[in-house]
Computed example of a mutant assay.
Amino acid sequence: MRHGKKFNHLSRKKGHRVALMKNMSNALVKHKRINTTLAKAKALRVFLEPLITKAKKNTTHSRRTVFGYLQDKSSIEELFGPIAEKVAARPGGYLRIIKTGFRKGDAAETALIEFVDYNDVYSNEGKQGSSGRRRRRRGGGNKNAAAVKGKNEEE
């Protein structure tokens, strides 16, 4: 039974799991994207997104709180500096997980986890001529084709 199992334990004891999340968080902050298994990426997102939210408010208390989790001064400087500036206007959802297939050795499902604001491929900043809003086609389509179709059915 899974009474009280609120998160994925990743088949590790608490100390190992905390060390894993700390190391993966530091690597993600340093490199902006990492490849890992899908389960670890989902667990990392749950672990790191609240810390990024705390980093948006640059106070001594929030710095000490985040340092308690990451324990790496260079990661803290990066998180409270450039990363916090880029995500300042974003209300959440700082990380993106992209499935990348299955690992050859053990067929584990792999994924790429990255900061949303650091990928130029998906951002609108790289596109030229973009008005900033998305255009979607509604069901209306071509009205002339519908009129011709109606005339053909009458004949």
Rank of each mutant, 00 (worst) to 15 (best):
His31Pro: 07
Lys6Gln: 14
Ala43Gly: 00
Lys86Pro: 05
Asn142Cys: 11
Arg2Gln: 10
Lys143Asp: 10
Arg2Leu: 09
Arg96Val: 11
Ser130Cys: 14
Asn23Thr: 12
Ala146Gln: 15
Val29Lys: 10
Arg137His: 08
Glu85Leu: 02
Lys54Gln: 15
Gly126Ile: 11
Ala89Asp: 05
Val148Ala: 11
Thr60Pro: 04
Arg96Tyr: 00
Lys99Trp: 10
Thr65Phe: 05
Gly101Gln: 06
Asn8Phe: 06
Ile83Cys: 06
Leu20Glu: 06
Tyr69Ile: 12
Phe67Lys: 01
Lys13Gly: 05
Lys30Val: 06
Thr37Gln: 00
Ser131Cys: 04
Lys22Ser: 00
Ser123His: 08
His16Thr: 03
Leu95Ser: 01
Gln71Met: 14
Ala19His: 04
Leu48Asn: 11
Leu20Cys: 10
Asn58Lys: 12
Thr37Pro: 06
Ser130Thr: 14
Ala89Ile: 05
Arg133Trp: 01
Pro50Lys: 07
Phe80Tyr: 04
Arg17His: 08
Thr110Trp: 00
Leu95Ile: 08
Lys127Glu: 14
Lys104Ile: 11
Ala55His: 11
Phe67Asp: 04
Gly81Glu: 08
Leu48Phe: 03
Lys32Gln: 08
Ala55Arg: 01
Arg64Leu: 12
Lys32Asn: 07
Glu153Phe: 00
Leu95Lys: 04
Gly139Met: 09
Lys6Trp: 04
Gly105Ala: 13
Val87Pro: 01
Leu10Arg: 00
Glu77Cys: 02
His9Gly: 13
Ala43Tyr: 04
Asn58Trp: 10
Lys86Glu: 07
Leu44Pro: 01
Arg133His: 09
Ala84Cys: 11
Asn58His: 10
Asp117Ile: 10
Pro82Gln: 12
Gly93Ala: 02
Ala145Pro: 02
Glu49Asp: 12
Thr53Trp: 07
Asn8Leu: 11
Asn8Lys: 12
His61Tyr: 12
Ser11Val: 00
Phe67Val: 06
Lys32Val: 06
Ser11Lys: 15
His31Val: 05
Ser11Gln: 15
Asn144Leu: 15
Thr53Ala: 13
Glu49Leu: 11
Arg96Trp: 02
Phe115Glu: 05
Thr100Asp: 01
Ile52His: 06
Ala39Gln: 03
Met21Gly: 02
Ala88Glu: 13
